[in-house]
Simulated scan of single mutants.
Amino acid sequence: MAWVEQRGKRWRVRYWAANGKAASVPGSFPTRRAAQAHADQLHSTPTTPPDIVPAPTPTSAITTAAAPSGTITQPPPTIADWARVWWQTVDVGDNTEAFYRSLLTRHILPRWGTTPVHQITPADIKIWLNTLTPAYAPATVTSIRKLLAMLMTDAVDNGLITTNPVRPQRRGRGRLQPRRERPWADEHQVLTIAHRVFHLASRNQALLVITAAYTGMRWGELAGLHRDNLDLPSNRLHITASGALHEVNGHLSLGHPKTLASVRTVSLPPLPHPTAPRRPDRLHPPLRLHHPARKTP
């Protein structure tokens, strides 16, 4: 018996495998109707194993390594083959999508693209991550590991492999790394930086430095500020659902802040610098505070 399930913006066909566990037909479908038609085809041809029935999408190249005798088999799928299919199921924001694509093309595919999915072992992954640690920041290595884990988890769900080779760091393993203290600027240092920016750039850019230091706002939230977001008589800033500036592949656009909780009202302390305007209509143009490296046409 086969049925359909929605996954992100696409649909997949599920069925009960011989071991009694639910499995997925490799690949996905753009519409529920296409997925249901494929499921109906499985019902009409029960002698054909679902995992080798070609799907009417580019995902038909993904098949399991084993197939019964008398059928035409394809080479075991590589990480590059599976990544092309998996990418169609990704449903994230534009910034996250660009970040995932960068990690895939710069790190994961150059190393694992030609490797068959079923040949990767946990030891292979651990050795590779260890080679990345001296060259990249810990956050970058963690992001690479998490993305590869997502890729392989979905490979398990689609029946390409039985277990995920990307394992979490086990407690008690690895060297103890000293915790680095983050540098924090005091009030005098903040005002010194803002004063320097005021002379080298503009009044608005100096005000951004002060606002960032005293509110903890993200850079995109600061760069997306508009006069309508300011309530200076009440010393408040309103970050709206479309109040963050995003840059994706060189293109600037306004969109949602990082999380749902990021839509908020920020209370301002008394601004300590004479560059801080007292009224919104005293702000210098342009109306919107853009990235300082980009000028408004």
Rank of each mutant, 00 (worst) to 15 (best):
V4G: 02
Y15N: 00
A17N: 06
A22S: 12
A23K: 13
S24K: 05
S28V: 00
F29R: 01
R32Y: 06
R33F: 02
A34I: 03
A35M: 02
A35I: 00
Q41V: 03
I52G: 04
P54Y: 02
T63C: 15
T64N: 12
A65V: 15
A67V: 09
P68F: 05
P75L: 01
P77D: 09
P77K: 14
A80E: 15
W86D: 04
W86I: 03
Q88P: 06
T89M: 15
V90D: 03
V92S: 04
V92F: 06
G93C: 05
N95S: 15
T96V: 03
A98W: 11
A98D: 09
T115G: 07
V117K: 12
K126C: 09
K126L: 12
W128F: 11
T131L: 07
P138C: 11
A139I: 03
R145N: 07
L147M: 05
L148H: 07
A149S: 13
M152T: 06
T153C: 08
T153W: 07
A155F: 12
V156M: 06
G159A: 04
L160F: 09
I161F: 10
I161G: 06
T162N: 10
P165D: 08
R167Y: 07
P183G: 03
V190G: 04
T192K: 06
R196W: 11
A201R: 09
S202C: 02
S202E: 01
N204Y: 02
Q205E: 13
L207F: 13
L207D: 13
L208E: 01
I210H: 02
A212D: 02
G216P: 00
G220S: 02
A223G: 02
H226L: 14
N229C: 15
L232G: 07
N235A: 14
E247W: 06
L252Y: 14
T259A: 02
S267G: 12
L268W: 15
P269D: 15
T275D: 14
D281Q: 09
L283Q: 04
L287E: 11
H291D: 10
T296Q: 09
P297N: 07
